[in-house]
């Protein structure tokens, strides 16, 4: 394993972290459209909180996918072909929620507006759930041949562990979205989001405990990397508690940052457990290792130069765009 390979393994982790932190609250806001918003005016405001941002947030996924293709083509090829139907459903979900915001605003009848609102909500639920399910089942180990082709059955993808993983990620995204809503609104929407999260946090903690138990049973993380796995899990639980405290005390920033970081800690948990592999096979001899999966040193070198010269500029205007829309939105008056 070269240092460039490790650097790119970390960078893929950073890109997925960015994706889950940012698109995490997008998904949560999307779910909130129908489940949380009570009328059209409220839903307008809810969607407006992510209006200028959701598109840029989704680019983190595209960049993560592209970077994975560029730096670890064997990983990209195995994962994407092996999770064919899961990724297809994710794509459909992302399509529906992606167009829904623009389309909904221009519908004339109640029925069609409802249709696109449900598209946003169900699309967001499905995307978050399927991403959670995909990454959880991936770390369990999948049936893979020596060439990296995955020939899975239904239970490879859908089993107790992956279902719990999917639900946990969905719940974390919803909570993260509601924390974002508290940060970006005033009045009834903010108060109600706080009330919801007061209830949702205990549920999440139960879910996290269940997840840890199944993680212990279903993966080799504790056997191979006991200390680091435990540390990350403790950080995860601490972050959850801090976010809960932030919700209770109405410290919106604390709650939002902590719920975002807890999503990132899941990514860290997965990448830490994977290392030095990128794909875990049920037959350990077939697992794909970082050293075998990467592009040539030359390509990695080029990509490193590009990433370190372009990414800082991107981060500057990306963060600036959030600063431009820092103001809170008032909740609409009761209809």
């Amino acid at each position: 394993m070269t240092s460039a390979q490790i650097l790119w393994f970390l960078l893929i982790g950073v890109l997925f972290s960015g994706f889950f932190f940012l698109e995490g609250f997008d998904f949560g806001i999307g779910m909130a459209v129908r489940f949380f918003g009570r009328n059209t005016a409220e839903r307008d405001t809810i969607i407006q909180t992510i209006g200028p941002h959701w598109d840029g947030n989704e680019v983190w996924l595209i960049t993560a996918g592209g970077a994975m293709f560029a730096s670890f083509p064997m990983w990209y090829a195995s994962l994407f072909s092996g999770y064919y139907l899961v990724l297809f459903l994710i794509l459909v979900a992302l399509i529906f929620r992606g167009v829904s915001f623009e389309f909904r605003a221009n519908m004339k009848t109640e029925t069609w507006r409802n249709f696109w609102e449900w598209a946003a909500t169900i699309g967001s639920f499905c995307a978050a759930f399927l991403f959670g399910m995909m990454f959880t089942s991936m770390i369990e180990g999948v049936p893979m041949d020596a060439k990296g082709n995955i020939f899975g059955s239904f239970t490879t993808y859908v089993n107790w562990f992956s279902l719990v993983g999917g639900v946990a990620v969905t719940l974390m995204c919803l909570i993260h979205g509601l924390n974002f809503l508290q940060l970006k609104t005033l009045g009834t929407l903010r108060d109600r989001a706080q009330a919801w999260n007061k209830v949702l946090y205990p549920v999440l903690i139960v879910g996290e405990v269940l997840f840890v138990v199944l993680l212990y049973i279903s993966t080799d993380f504790f056997a191979k990397k006991s200390a680091s796995t435990w540390s990350i899990l403790i950080v995860l639980v601490l972050l959850t508690l801090i976010a809960w405290w932030g919700v209770l005390k109405a410290h919106n920033w604390t709650a939002f940052i902590a719920s975002g970081l807890s999503l990132i800690s899941i990514v860290v948990l997965i990448f830490n457990g994977l290392f030095p592999r990128v794909m875990i096979a049920t037959d350990p001899a077939h697992s794909i290792l970082i050293k075998d999966a990467s592009s040539s040193p030359y390509t990695l070198h080029i990509m490193t130069i590009v990433a370190f010269s372009v990414l800082p500029i991107v981060l500057v205007y990306f963060i600036w765009s959030y600063w431009v829309f820092y103001k809170r939105l008032k909740s609409p008056k009761a209809a």
Binding site: G65, A67, F69, A70, P73, M74, A77, L79, F80, V306
Partner: peptide, 30 residues
């Protein structure tokens, strides 16, 4: 490319992924 054309992705990854990643970084974000 990964889902339907994994052999292509393996064969071409060293060259093909780079422009895709650069596109996302240098163009899509903008």
């Amino acid at each position: 490319f990964g889902m339907n054309w994994s052999e292509y992705s393996r064969f071409m990854g060293d060259i093909f992924g780079a422009p895709l990643a650069i596109e996302a970084l240098a163009a899509f974000f903008l």
